[in-house]
Structures are given as C-alpha cells and as structure tokens.
Amino acid sequence: MGEAQLSIRNLYVEYHTDEEVVHAVNGISLDLEQGESLGLVGETGAGKTTTALSILGLLPKPNGKVTSGSIFFEGKELSQIPEEEMRQIRGNRISMIFQDPMTSLNPIFPVGEQIAEALEIHFSLSKEQAAKRTAELLELVGIPRNRMGEYPHQFSGGMKQRVVIAMALACNPKLLLADEPTTALDVTIQAQVLRMIRDLKRRMRTTLILISHDLGVVAQICDTVAIMYAGKIMEYGKIEDVFHHPLHPYTEGLFASIPRLDRTQKRLSSIPGLIPDPSNLPSGCVFHPRCPYRMDVCNQIVPTTVEWEGRKVQCLKYQELS
C-alpha cells in the first residue's frame, strides 16, 4: 500500500447562474491508489460528472467554480499548477471517456487521424510512428487496423465507443475517468465493451474512476465504490462490503428499488420523494426527508464521515461508533 495517486480533499463545487447557486459537490474526499478502480455511483444530479470535470480542471466557465478543497494528483495540487502544465496532464496522464461516443468524435476526420493527433501533440511522434502506435491501439480495443482510415459514421455505436477508449488510452494515462461509458450502448454490446475495459485495466494497471448510475456495471469492473447523493459521498467501501452489506439508508434504498433477476418481487420498494433541489438543499443530513430511519436530530446535525475497517459512511445512525 503506497501513497495515494489521486487524493481529493473536502472538495466543494458550485455553479452560479443568474438566479441561483447550485451546490453540485459538497465536501467530498477520496483517495485512489495506483491501479485501483473506483465506481462512482449516483442518480442524476448527484455530482458525479462534476467531480470528474473538477479533476480535469474542465468545469464549464464561467459558471462552475471549485469553492474550496483540493485535488492532489501524484503529489501535486492540481489547482496550483499553471494552465499550460495542466494541458500537458490532461489527455496525457489523466484522460476521460465521455458518455456519448457520437459527439466525442469529429465527424470530418478519419478515426485513425484523431488518435494519431493526440500522440503527435503529447509525444511529438513522427507521422509514421504515430500511425504505427494508432494501429496498435485500435487492435488493443478490438478494431482491425485496416479500419484506421474510416470515418466515424462508418462505425456502429459500440465500435465508436471503442475508438473513443483507444483515444483515451493513446498516451498511456495513469488515471482514466470514464463517465457512463456504456450507457448509450445495447446490453450485448455493453457486455463486450465492459469486458474489454476490465481486461485493459488488468493489463495496463491504469487507475480507473468509473462513473455510472448502474450498480451492475460497477459490480463487474470496480474494486471500490462510492455512493453519491446530492453532492456528498454517502458511503464508501470495498465493492463486496457495500454490495453485500450496505450501511447507509440511501444505499439500501437504491439496491431495493432495482428489479431483481434472481428473485420474484410483487412490488419494488422505492425511495419515497424526490432528489433534492441542489440550489436549495435540506438542512442537516441531505437525505433525511426521504430516509425511513429518520431521527429527530437528522434535520439539524450534518453527519460527519464515520470510518472503520476501510469503510466510510455519512449517517447519524453510525455516529456513536466513531
């Protein structure tokens, strides 16, 4: 167990619009070791994508802002380094795969050229060297090298996502952020792509943050999982621990609302109510209005993170344990 490769400390991110302040990320802390893969799970508006964009320094300007906290990558604080150096890190040491493969590729250039471009920028390779490496990368993701000269529209959705992944891997990144990489794909194609990601991860020992709303996807790929809700990490732990014994009431509710293949249910148990408005978060614990174990103090006291045996949970139920 070495030094953490990526370390997020008490990160807060806000989006300012004319009318309101959206509290997208509200004090999250995470540590990832080299080669670890973390699943970041949560529903719409939980702050998953915002977290990834803050790591890359790509929050939409001028609305999005890190208001406090810090992100350390390989010992350097990312907010302190100049934009020029950040550009070097982006795409090179940290790269990101976006949800929609259709919009991640430029329709007017052949896919091979788009991958080669990244190589030429970051490694100043010659045209021939870049082409050779591109062919290797495409084969790595299961695309025959003779398709290098084809344009994005000649590829199916699953193949496009493979191209995007090849592009992200082009510079041997140390950290890969994958934002819902298979959500736009059909289930049999998703299975192919997920297996590929899993194999690549094992082979290249890249650190991975997999953002997904699908607990099943995370279960197949990740070692650890963080459950996000309203910009906070409600629960964190080893994947087996969290999946077999969820601690936080939200995690419990999330698992219970998924229809199961392995048993028959007459009714699903759903979490009552709605995801809170991020511009007007509830007082105390953000989950308390929907929580079945709500206590009187839950709307007054913001729970702190309780930590033991490698697990973390933010809930007043467990507060006495600390």
Binding site: T44, G45, L274, I275, P276, D277, P278
Partner: peptide
Amino acid sequence: MSSPVKPH
C-alpha cells in the same frame, strides 16, 4: 438536470 418545483 432535474428541477423540482420552483417556489414561484
């Protein structure tokens, strides 16, 4: 983004 009912 999900927007719950605004006050006005």
